[in-house]
Design a protein around this nucleic acid. Structure first.
Lengths: 188, 188
DNA sequence: CGCTATAGAATGAACGTTCATTCCGCGAGG
DNA sequence: CCTCGCGGAATGAACGTTCATTCTATAGCG
């Protein structure tokens, strides 16, 4: 069994449950079923461990969102594909949702790293918006802004659903994608 | 001078700068220009201190957003008023933006407390959405969902602007409010 | 045997909290 | 007007705990 991944998985679990504020190495070691010292054979410091976990998670999410992503689809179809996959992923992986929230909020992770977070999905989105703008279907506002709205909306909804299950919000995914699209689309 | 508020302000500053992960009482005491023991004359434990800070911040934001909020205005005008004030507040108070982010993300704060966070602005928004729905101008989706999209969009944009000042995003506030409104409004 | 990988005890720094002490403002007594 | 004595507020050194990291003894393998 790959100890390295075992440790990364345990770190993810502990951070998701207790937050970055209280994820001692001892707890991580126990969760990984590994000696405390062993962690240091794979990661130089706790900081490095967390940075690598961040990179790992970002890679996983990006890859998932871009699976079966075809340029042959229409702009709107590609938008729905990528962001629908993003939302569904967050809904089905509560642990990773909480983990991403923790990592995004941490001032420890340098902002450079955070911008890299979802780089491939991010750059794909920017390209998509450029294309959409050239055919005049979305608003003429900075791409970064439109992307932030899309990401922020879907991420926050997934978070809300997880934090307040009693509210029993069970929207159709398509309704959510329509929300986001309507936000950025030009009104005729 | 009110020591209690002095301590709360110092706590806010330290958390905003270093995050919840590293805000030792010693650092807070130094920032408040107060002995470490003094803090315990006003707050039983660190946990209580942070909870009270949370309540204080929530109160401040809610109050700011609802200033001059008049029921005489149209639905759209009230929407713009409340959420415009919210966005401007976040833009002008970077420290409080970061503080809110930290507090929102903390698993330490019980979810009950977090739901109470912006209760008055929240309940006002829900009422507004009910009114808007009855005249058929916004989508027939759960109010909580529409509120989450609005909050999430504006909060994330303000965060992004603060984190990435080099992107030089300087949108008109009205454009952002239009984004949010278009998301939740029914398309004719 | 050596060599690597491992577990977990050992270590010292840093933490939240406590407590004996100091400080300060003020009313009483001279 | 000064001085003393008092009580609550404030202090920061000290305490026990917990943390990240290092060290050491050992097990497995060629």
């Amino acid at each position: 069994m790959d100890k390295r991944e075992q440790i990364l998985a345990a770190t993810a679990a502990v951070i998701a449950e207790y937050g970055l504020e209280s994820c001692p190495m001892a707890k991580i070691a126990k969760a990984a079923d590994v000696g405390a010292g062993t962690i240091y054979r794979y990661f130089a410091t706790k900081e490095v461990l967390i940075e690598e976990l961040h990179a790992f998670l970002a890679q996983e999410i990006s890859q998932h969102c871009l699976t079966d992503y075809g340029v042959k689809l229409s702009v709107r179809q590609r938008f729905d594909h990528m962001w629908g996959r993003f939302y569904e992923f967050m809904r089905q992986n509560n642990e990773k949702l909480r983990l991403l929230e923790q990592l995004q909020a941490s001032p420890a992770l340098c902002s450079a790293a955070r911008e890299e977070t979802l780089r491939s999905i991010h750059s794909e989105t920017l390209a998509l918006f450029d294309e959409a703008k050239s055919s005049g279907v979305i608003k003429d506002l900075p791409n970064e802004l439109l992307a932030t709205v899309t990401f922020g909306s879907l991420f926050n909804i997934a978070k809300k659903q997880q934090q307040c299950p009693h509210l029993d919000l069970k929207p159709q995914v398509q309704d959510l994608l329509d929300l986001c699209w309507d936000a950025i689309a030009k009104r005729q």
